[in-house]
């Protein structure tokens, strides 16, 4: 009894500790997520996705900044700033008239679109979000590669071919088994019907064997179940005919 009580209180303490760790003392940091790499085609557009998670309520003071460091240079330039509910796009630099804000801070989304890509856009883009008072945490970086023609990602065709063929084979096997199962069930029901019919006939034939000399060979033909359903149905009609004949008598 006593040991039970202590174990119960122990688990209670544990739960309380977990609760306080998860809810009462959250990690005071903001987490920003982007892709690691984005591929684009020359002249095309690309979406640089950026989402974040903050332990705080999204305040009106939230700010989102996009920084760009070209592949060839060392300088990091600011290309986009969102503050006080107002997006500010770089109007003088390389991304003039080519950038669009598509995010929504209330949905924890800070994405931008870059249009009319060129090889000079190769480089690293950094998404940085501050949600005062939650300003700690790391920013996230995404590297943009601009290609003349976007190469197929490794393993896409490989996986598609393997998956497709294996799926096809599995489908064929399943269909084959289903057909076989249906066929067997049909055969079994047919057999049951036939045997039931046969039983009734035998009883009747035993009854009126004194009147009739011999049964027609129809009965023996019906015992052969290995024929196709077509012949079986034929036999059934034959059996029906025989019965009707007998009923007349």
């Amino acid at each position: 009894m006593g040991s039970q009580g202590t174990s119960g209180s122990g688990s209670l303490v544990l739960v309380a500790a977990l609760f306080s760790a998860l809810v009462l003392a959250p990690t005071w940091a903001i987490h920003v997520y982007t892709h690691r790499e984005v591929h684009g085609t020359v002249g095309d557009q690309v979406t640089l996705a950026c989402s974040f998670w903050s332990s705080e309520w999204i305040s009106d003071d939230i700010s989102i900044t996009w920084l760009f460091q070209p592949e060839s240079g060392k300088d990091t330039i600011s290309i986009f700033h969102f503050v006080k509910g107002q997006p500010y796009v770089d109007e003088v630099g390389a991304f003039k008239n080519r950038m669009e804000w598509v995010g929504d801070p209330h949905r924890k989304d800070g994405s931008i679109i870059i249009r009319n890509l060129d090889y000079t856009d190769n480089g690293t883009f950094t998404c940085d979000v501050k949600n005062p008072p939650d300003i700690g945490g790391k920013s996230s970086q995404v590297t943009l590669y601009v290609f003349e023609k976007v190469p197929t990602r490794y393993g896409v065709v490989l996986g598609a071919v393997i998956g497709g063929v294996l799926g096809l084979v599995i489908l064929v096997v399943v269909i084959g088994y289903l057909i076989r199962y249906c066929w067997l069930r049909r055969q079994a029901t047919l057999q049951r019907q036939l045997s039931a019919m046969e039983k009734g006939k035998l009883q009747r034939s035993a009854k009126d064997s004194s009147k009739r000399g011999r049964q027609p060979p129809v009965l023996y033909a019906m015992l052969d179940h290995s024929r196709s359903t077509k012949s079986a149905s034929e036999k059934k009609s034959k059996g029906g005919l025989g019965e009707s004949r007998k009923d007349k008598k």
């Binding site: 197929t152 490794y154 065709v157 490989l158 071919v161 393997i162 294996l166």
Partner: peptide
């Protein structure tokens, strides 16, 4: 070095793996 990500090369790889499977 790893070979290219050409679509045809990938399908060759897929065919070889499928044949083993």
């Amino acid at each position: 070095v790893t070979s290219s990500t050409n679509e045809w090369l990938q399908s060759v790889q897929a065919m070889m793996i499928l044949s083993i499977i």
